[in-house]
Design a protein around this nucleic acid. Structure first.
Lengths: 197, 197
DNA sequence: CCTACCGATCGGTAGG
DNA sequence: CCTACCGATCGGTAGG
């Protein structure tokens, strides 16, 4: 199957880019991981950067779909409850990271290696993704549910903490993805909704 | 002065490594930023990796010294007050990042490019640095000042959020380093010491 | 600190 | 999907 070859290349490249960076990974490194010769990859892809773009694009789509589904579900379960919605958003993000740490790591750290047009496109999507957090925090402040003052700082701090999971999550480690999500929902919920500080 | 040339090379390399990664920066890139020819650098350094090591090592020393000074001061100001000590630790970390985002970015993200012996040495120092946070959190839990349960998760989440400042701090931006430190002290303080969640 | 140069490796193409 | 190969660039050395 033609499509699965292309997909296998992206999967292998995703893990290598995450571990060694885009510039630190050669086309021959990717080929070797698939037991191929370097030039053979070009029967399936048109350039190294196209592979990076495919990984970043699919990772972005996965984060976006996860967040939108979480917000839709939380909105129907408990309308107008920003604490509940934030918990759903945090949980969705953690699962998007842990489901594919390769893709998530490349999405978070390697987008700088994209050519300008694609880099700007992905930056716009990252901004729109962060807006989901920022708008929800502003809403929570507005209804008096959150005791903080600056939605922009809070959303950035929360997202960097969430993206940090990509650097320390171990699939066979002491904490499952669900437990990590529980911890982050708790920690971030306290940070936002605490009433005594 | 011989030493200042070496230092100028490290300073330029620090910013380039942070912006483009170690593998994405060539020796000629560093030389060009100093208006030199590539091979001329080797009159002052013995290898590209030695430059990376010098940057990572001095960044680590700066983080360590800042944290130790903050803990010593907080301990003499308010002995046995983990909330106050954590605020001092957070403030020290934010300032270590904002004082030199190049060094901090390389320390946080580029240590993977070090050869094994140096990589392990820096990992040990990173672990010891994180221990300052983890031990303080465990102490705070022990005396009932913190309402959380897992010092290891909390210290990791806090440190990734603090290190994230390197990705969004802008020296001429809307927020000064001091204001950013204020925000993080507040957000992390709420996360740890909140009593109502 | 320069020019000239080294072997190795880079992303990618030609042709089968 | 392979072999053979391209020009460009890599980190680094020799010799001045």
């Amino acid at each position: 199957m033609v499509e699965s070859r292309r997909r296998a290349i992206e999967d292998v490249a995703s893990e290598l880019f995450r571990a060694n960076g885009y510039a630190g990974t050669s086309v021959r490194d990717i080929a070797r991981a698939l037991s191929l010769q370097g030039p053979s990859l070009y029967a399936h892809v048109t350039s190294k950067e196209d592979v990076l773009w495919a990984i970043v694009d699919r990772a972005a789509s996965r984060f976006e779909a996860g967040a939108d589904a979480a917000l839709a579900r939380a909105g129907s379960e408990r309308p107008g409850d920003p604490v509940h919605a934030m918990a759903a958003l945090v949980r969705a993000h953690v699962h998007a990271v842990t489901e594919d740490v390769g893709d998530a790591g490349v999405f978070v750290n390697e987008w700088r290696s994209l050519a300008p047009a694609r880099r700007e496109a992905i930056l716009a999507r990252r901004d729109a993704y962060e807006d989901r957090f920022r708008n929800l925090i502003a809403e929570g402040i507005g209804v008096g549910a959150f005791g903080i003052t600056d939605p922009a700082v809070a959303s950035t701090v929360i997202l960097t903490a969430l993206n940090g999971v990509v650097t320390w999550y171990e699939p066979d480690g002491r904490l499952t993805a669900d437990r990590i999500a529980d911890h982050l929902v708790g920690l971030i919920g306290r940070m936002l909704a605490c009433e005594t500080l």
